[in-house]
Design a binder for these strands. Structure first.
Length: 551
RNA sequence: UGGGUUAUGGUGUAAAGGUAGCACAACAGAUUUUGAUUCUGUUUGUCUAGGUUCGAAUCCUAGUAACCCAACCA
């Protein structure tokens, strides 16, 4: 069986580079800025960068792009590393752009000596003004033609801390009339008297992204530097700097960032959700962050499979959330232990079952024979799901209704005889008779019932808090709607219920995955304690009845 | 007449002049002690207009639309 899988455009480039002998082996890097948490968009990049070197040989570095000390913190570094490991990837070297600050400083001096960089005393407003606009050329700064000696002296004084923040910058000397705004004498260094999470107070000048990223790539001899489409205009500058500096020629390639429907994926927006209390932190299970998805119960494999399947290209896109859910369910279907839990309980009383009697049934743990069985206790009074009973059976309804029969999973067939209602019209109890000869495993009743429902024995049940999560936004693309994206938050994205779960869940483990039969996939939340079980719903099961009911 | 990038079913992604394919979604059916899973089948697409060619998603010409670029952020 040779299944031919087509290549994406990056794989094509790499295969050509390998074939032509341009490279013997490839090196990529994942370059997060340690100023926030990783999200699903980063996962795409991680899978891509690490996946490429795994496929073609070579290795990937983890490099923190820590050139802005004001926003960056070590706490983020640790979380980012944990997230990448959890996703299942290993970097060859853990590196920091700040490791290269000395080299970068020398590069700057080289540029000054070549007459290709100058110190500008303009304020940021003045610089912006002289920059022009996309449709109008810029004008030269009055400081543009300083001598090499003067520039050298000023740059050194910048480094020595003789100037206040914002008073001087080092700029490349390219062309103020260039059609590419980034080539209009871009800033290379700025003054920031700030404490850096790694270099401390050694520096008060810090390189800009454009004077750090490509140079770091070059220093690490990255062969394929992969980034998102908004960096396309930077490539011209990326190449210019490498050429003028005469350093190892890394090459930049761009792909379109991945968007997911019903969520937002920018650090800025996610930060707002956290800061303004719409969610409970970066790892809130509704967040598209790696940590949030982990807490929600996503598996690393489901995320990796998703990234592989949706592919990579250069056009704008919004991937349907259902694709992610598909890979989640696919993985969980095999990984999850089956258990019974009733989320919206109503009491079912078996009138012809002996008072005080208890039986034990064996129920399968999973779809594969190998997953084995577990013991579930049964008695006269059970909790069942309120939605599994209808006073008047609908068309195609094959659950409980007056006169109707259902199978209690792994136990007996019961028939509904009557039910109790309170003054408000709420069902308070359902009375049934059971068929002793329909015992699961040796059913001699000869009856075939269409419906099977889950249950939990009242006297054996454990109570648990269950957090039911739904999509965070009501619309597919909150960012493209009128007004503020937060206006489209789904008010029902979290619903907390008190459920009854089968006693085997007493020993639920942190990494265990469960399928609450017929209800969805769940995992233990970190808020869970010995006295109070707390479960998160990862994702529901597909529900054919819900669709039928809508008709 | 700023520059750049991109256009293939509802969504994502293939097809390097030769049968428009795959996945998700949707729909129909079979199996089912989970209305799950599994299995079978069906619907839906090349931005527009010209041109080259026996033959065009692909090549040419002219349009159109969307996105990115004017942070001492990355």
């Amino acid at each position: 069986m040779t299944e031919e899988k087509s290549l994406n455009f990056l794989e094509e480039i790499i295969e050509e580079d390998l074939r032509s002998g341009k490279y013997k082996t490839i090196v990529t890097r994942f370059p997060p800025e340690p100023n926030g948490y990783l999200h699903m968009g980063h996962a795409t990049s991680i899978c891509l960068n690490f996946g490429l070197t795994a496929k073609y040989g070579g290795y990937s570095n983890l490099r923190f792009d820590d050139t802005n000390p004001v926003t960056e913190e070590t706490e983020y570094v640790d979380n980012i590393k944990a997230d990448i490991k959890w996703l299942g990837f290993e970097w060859k070297n853990e590196l920091y752009a700040s490791d290269y600050f000395d080299t970068l400083y020398e590069y700057a001096i080289k540029l000054i000596n070549k007459g290709l960089a100058y110190v500008d005393d303009s304020t940021s407003e003045e610089i912006a003004l002289l920059k022009g606009t996309p449709t109008e050329p810029g004008k030269d700064s009055p400081y543009r033609n300083r001598s090499v000696q003067e520039n050298l002296g000023l740059f050194e004084r910048m480094k020595n801390g003789e100037f206040a923040d914002g008073t001087h910058t080092l700029r490349a000397k390219i062309d103020m009339a260039h059609t590419n705004m980034l080539m209009r004498d871009p800033l290379l260094y700025r003054i920031k008297h700030a404490h850096h999470h790694r270099t401390g107070d050694k520096w008060c000048i810090y390189p800009m992204y454009d004077f750090a990223h490509g140079q770091s790539d070059s220093i690490e001899q990255i062969t394929h530097s992969i980034c998102t489409l908004e960096f396309v205009p930077h490539r011209e500058l990326y190449d210019w700097l490498i050429e003028k500096l005469e350093i190892y020629p890394s090459h930049q390639y761009e792909f379109a960032r991945r968007n997911l429907s019903y969520t937002v994926m920018s650090k800025r927006k996610l930060l707002q959700l956290v800061n303004e209390g719409y969610v409970n932190g970066w790892d809130d299970p509704r967040m598209p962050t790696i940590s949030g998805m982990r807490r929600r119960g996503f598996t690393p494999a489901s995320i990796r499979n998703f990234c592989d399947r949706i592919g990579i290209a250069k056009r704008e896109n919004v991937t349907d959330f259902s694709v992610l859910e598909f890979f989640l369910r696919e993985d969980l279907n095999h990984a999850a232990q089956r258990v019974m839990a009733v989320l919206d309980p109503v009491k079912l009383i078996i009138t012809n079952y002996e008072d005080g009697k208890t039986e034990e049934f064996q129920s399968e743990n999973g779809p594969d024979e190998a997953s084995g069985t577990r013991t579930v206790p049964f008695s006269k009074e059970l909790w069942i799901e309120r939605e599994d009973f209808m006073e008047e059976a609908a068309k195609k309804w094959f659950r409980l209704a007056p006169g109707a029969m259902v199978r209690l999973k792994s136990a007996y067939i019961v028939r509904c005889d009557s039910y109790d209602k309170d003054a408000d019209g709420n069902i308070t109890a359902i009375h049934c008779t059971y068929l002793p000869e329909s015992r699961s495993g040796n059913d001699t009743s000869g009856l075939k019932v269409k419906g099977t429902i889950h249950w939990v024995s009242v006297q054996h049940a454990l109570s648990a808090e269950v957090r039911l999560y739904d999509r965070l936004f009501k619309v597919e693309n909150p960012s493209s709607e009128e007004g503020d994206f937060k206006d489209y938050i789904n008010p029902d994205s979290l619903q907390i219920v008190n459920a009854f779960v089968e006693p085997s869940l007493k020993n639920a483990g942190k990494d265990d995955r469960y399928q609450f039969l017929r209800k969805g996939y769940f995992c233990l939340d970190e808020d869970s304690t010995a006295g109070q079980l707390v479960f998160n719903r990862t994702v529901t099961l597909k529900d054919a009845w819900a669709k039928e009911a809508q008709k």
